[in-house]
């Protein structure tokens, strides 16, 4: 297949116009590299925000003097809510014990207390899908309306941070990826358009000799595709050459970076994207051929 006529013409064309094609390949490689970075950014934010809801919890403070039957009733009501994943009851005594453990050496602070001032609480863990603004608000309303509940506390800041990070990173990622993709298509379009104009006479001759539109287009599409593909391969090579020496060295001094995930499964995508974008750019550049 690669020795067939359109391939030969395309590869000869790439070699003849090597400088313009080289610059085009570099631009595509840079663009795809940045797109891959943007995808990794969104992916890592998504991973981080996926883990955060597990740390999000709601604390329900119970009124004083509730019987164990009443407390069991409250726990049953809370458990029946579909947003709630797990429920942990902490009695007044357990709360005091926990406080004493955490104070450790400073236990003397609690000396002189006649009675346990800590309220009994119920800690709720939520299902991941339920950690959204509206769902949490609904749940809070329900919890507050339960008899025997004195107060409800939750990580309002954490919740809004999750929401903001998620929404903004997705928007930034989408804008970056769209802008860079459009830029790459434009680069391919411009390159093929220039080559197409340079070969205008040749194309006219081909038409007069009886060439079909497909015969005329094929080398240009192959040229666009090959340029895009090479650009994609270079972007992956750049990614790998950065990943191993740089990223691994950086994680020594900035351990937080260890949490950054670079899934190797995405590596085939930049070359595929380059190929598709190259062909699309060439297709737009050639436009409609008239006889």
């Amino acid at each position: 297949m690669f020795t067939s006529y359109p391939f030969k013409v395309a590869l000869t064309g790439i070699w003849r116009e090597k400088w313009i094609n080289f610059l085009c390949i570099l631009t595509i490689a840079t663009g795809l590299f940045l797109i891959t970075l943007a995808v990794l950014f969104v992916h890592n934010i998504e991973l981080a925000t996926r883990k955060l809801p597990e740390k999000f919890s709601i604390t329900v403070f119970l009124e004083e003097g509730l019987s164990s039957k009443q407390i069991q009733g409250i726990i049953r009501t809370i458990k029946s809510n579909s947003a709630v994943k797990k429920v942990k009851y902490i009695s007044k005594e357990d709360a005091l014990k926990e406080l004493k453990t955490s104070l450790a050496d400073a236990e003397y602070l609690l000396e002189g207390l006649d009675e346990n001032p800590l309220p009994a609480t119920i800690e709720l863990g939520l299902r991941r899908s339920s950690v959204t603004g509206a769902a949490v608000e609904n749940l809070l309303e329900e919890l507050k309306s339960i008899n025997g509940v004195s107060e409800v506390q939750y990580g309002r800041k954490l919740l809004s941070a999750i929401q903001t990070i998620k929404t903004n990173s997705e928007a930034i990622g989408f804008i970056l990826i769209s802008a860079l993709s459009a830029g790459i298509v434009f680069v391919c379009y411009s390159t093929v358009k220039i080559l197409f104009y340079r070969k205008k006479d040749e194309i006219e001759t081909l038409k007069l000799l009886g060439a079909t539109k497909g015969f005329i287009r094929a080398p240009f599409l192959i040229e666009g595709g090959v340029i895009g593909l090479i650009g994609g391969v270079i972007s992956v090579a750049g990614m790998l050459s950065l990943y191993y020496p740089l990223y691994q060295r950086l994680t020594v001094s900035i351990p937080l970076l260890k949490a950054v995930s670079i899934p190797l499964g995405i590596l085939p995508y930049p070359p595929i994207a380059g190929l598709v974008i190259g062909v699309v750019g060439a297709l737009i550049a050639i436009g409609r051929i008239k006889f």
Partner: peptide, 17 residues
């Protein structure tokens, strides 16, 4: 294109590639 294939043309300006 198919009609043009029935016709061979010797162009005045050659049109050699």
């Amino acid at each position: 294109p198919y009609l043009r294939r029935k016709i061979g043309v010797v162009f005045q300006d050659f049109r050699l590639l």
